[in-house]
């Protein structure tokens, strides 16, 4: 029964974004334009260094379009629930939410999964198709790989959610959370592999970047789709994402508990 409730919340999250058709089209257009610009720069780079970062040129170009497909899905440039939640915390409306029967984190996670699902379909597919029409991409034919990719994307969204949940909760303690969210989103853009695949990062920077949670948001799903993780390797990659997801969600829960006590003490 609780499952049904959260599913309904997710469906509502999906519908909420699905109503803005013109905005979605505009977003698809913008993602496609950016995809082209980045694709040409990668083409030049891999033209000179054919196996840079372990990718063929086709794989590198595929990586670009996966990035454009996941940019909004992972809410890498913000645009998810976090501003709304932070606003509720600042205005004090959060006190009401904490007394609701639904779990705060679970409620927002469901809604965000619904949103991500819409963004993957509505804003991810069309740019990918455009990219595939112009460039030669290395998309897998094996349905198992696609299935693993979907699992990986879902785990990535959970990691992304957990990070943004922490950012939003910081509003309990900080008057102006703009600075925190700016830093976190910058880190996300850079360390997810959105600007350049993390496998291209040199030395220790690459090692560090691949170990941080943000790599779960683009680098890992992209590598799963590109078939760079096979068999147990794929499972290990998913386990890496799941580990970060669990750790961050739990941190969020703990922080939420502390915050809730604070709200109760202050009387809302």
């Amino acid at each position: 029964m609780r499952g049904g409730f959260y599913a309904a919340v997710a469906v509502r999250g999906f519908r909420r974004y699905a109503t803005y058709r013109t905005a979605t089209l505009a977003g698809v257009f913008t993602n496609t334009v950016f995809g082209f610009i980045i694709a040409y720069s990668y083409e030049a780079l891999w033209g000179q260094r054919p196996h840079l970062g372990g990718y063929t040129e086709a794989q590198a170009l595929t990586y670009v379009w996966i990035g454009q497909a996941l940019l909004q899905t992972m809410a890498l440039m913000a645009g998810g629930f976090e501003e709304e939640l932070a606003e509720r915390i600042r205005s004090g409306d959060i006190a009401v939410d904490l007394y609701r029967p639904a779990d705060l984190q679970g409620w927002w996670l469901s809604a965000d999964l619904g949103r991500a699902c819409f963004h993957l379909l509505g804003r991810g597919v069309a740019p990918m198709v455009c990219g595939a029409l112009v460039f030669e991409l290395a998309l897998p034919t094996n349905p198992v790989t696609w299935l693993l990719f979907l699992v990986s994307v879902t785990l990535g969204v959970v990691v992304s959610f957990a990070i943004r949940f922490l950012v939003a909760l910081s509003s309990f303690w900080l008057l102006d959370g703009a600075g925190v969210s700016q830093v976190v989103f910058l880190a996300g853009l850079f360390f997810s592999g959105m600007l350049l695949p993390l496998t291209v990062f040199p030395g220790w920077l690459g090692v560090l970047a691949r170990a941080l949670p943000w790599s779960a948001m683009l680098q890992v799903p992209a590598d799963v789709l590109l078939g760079r993780h096979e068999g147990t390797g794929a499972l290990l990659a998913l386990a890496f994402q799941a580990g970060w997801a669990a750790a961050l969600l739990l941190t969020g829960r703990a922080l939420q508990a502390v915050a809730a006590r604070r709200v109760v003490v202050q009387g809302g």
């Binding site: 013109t22 950016f34 720069s41």
Partner: peptide, 19 residues
């Protein structure tokens, strides 16, 4: 509603001109 299209010319254009 389509204000994001503007970004493809402004931010997109800026990125393109860096190369």
């Amino acid at each position: 509603d389509a204000s994001e299209v503007q970004n493809s010319v402004t931010y997109g254009g800026n990125t393109m001109l860096q190369y």
